[in-house]
Amino acid sequence: MTDSQHQTQQVPLLRVEELTVRLRGEAGIVHAVSDVSFQLQRGQTLGIVGESGSGKSVMARALMGLLPRRATHLMEGSVSLAVDGRVLELLKLSEREFRTLRGPRLAMVFQDPMTALNPVLTLGVQIAEPLQLHLGLNKAQAMARALELLTQVGIPDPEGRLRQYPHQLSGGMRQRVVIAIALACDPQVLLADEPTTALDVTVQRQVLDLLLALQRERQMGMVLITHDLGVVANRADHIAVMYAGRIVEYAPTSRLFSSMRHPYTEALFKSVPRLSDPSHTRLHAIPGRPPQLIDPAPGCAFAPRCPNAQQRCRRETPALAQIGDQHLHACFYPIGSKEVGA
């Protein structure tokens, strides 16, 4: 880079701009992701929060280039990844080019460790595979490295595990293996799609802490996708709240929690049970259902469930607007604005 130190820092590791994904569903075209933009710096964690069906997983798969071609109706926008001082436009890559990035540049941790591992291959083979493919290691070298990885993700008796099959491990252990596979080729960006949702509550925290520790140690950029605000609360640097395929609020974590503006963010926040609450505190469920993403109606998608909704919300779609340092939201009548009370 010829620019100054300051400028180098400004080049984000991953920059997503106006990403729009539409999929062919059985009932019609699904507007899964609409106009999503965000940036991710090296060593940072971005939390993406939303209900199931809000398009988070589709977005993650789009970033990984994993959406099946046949099912993709439309993919627009720009996803750029900084690789060795160059910037690659991911959406323009061929499948073959993209494949060389998966593993050493981009990696993903899947939601359900019970189904994410191949039942008929040993763990060793599954961890060693990307090492042999991308780093050109031979089998023995790859196995030695797999052993190190298993140790790093905190699996006891890693040597014995290499020869075992997925069904011989518990869910939490399997998720650690999935993490080991993701980290095998030292990726720059790690996408964790609901990495703990399928796990027991007691194991969830361990796995999350492990992920975070590894991310800090390796200075990866991490996108942590979850439906649970509590998961990202003290783990993410920034949080993006997604609803119906759009980002509706984006802010640094502390700022989001101190002054959330979008009614949906608040509803999500209130629906998280807190230990500090007195017992028998009523949990706030969000009224209504998540919107359908086939032929979405005009206007704000949250309007039918929103306590603040006005006429305008049903006609126009609010754009994501900056309201302060790194704080954006997409709402005509945000919380704390005068018009609501008026």
């Binding site: 998966r102 993903m108 189904t115 191949n118 595979e129 990307p130 493919l133």
Partner: peptide, 20 residues
Amino acid sequence: DYITLARAKGVPNWQIMLRH
């Protein structure tokens, strides 16, 4: 999912078919 994971590892398609 494990096929998607294999793709996420960057395994070529023919190898996914044969091996996974």
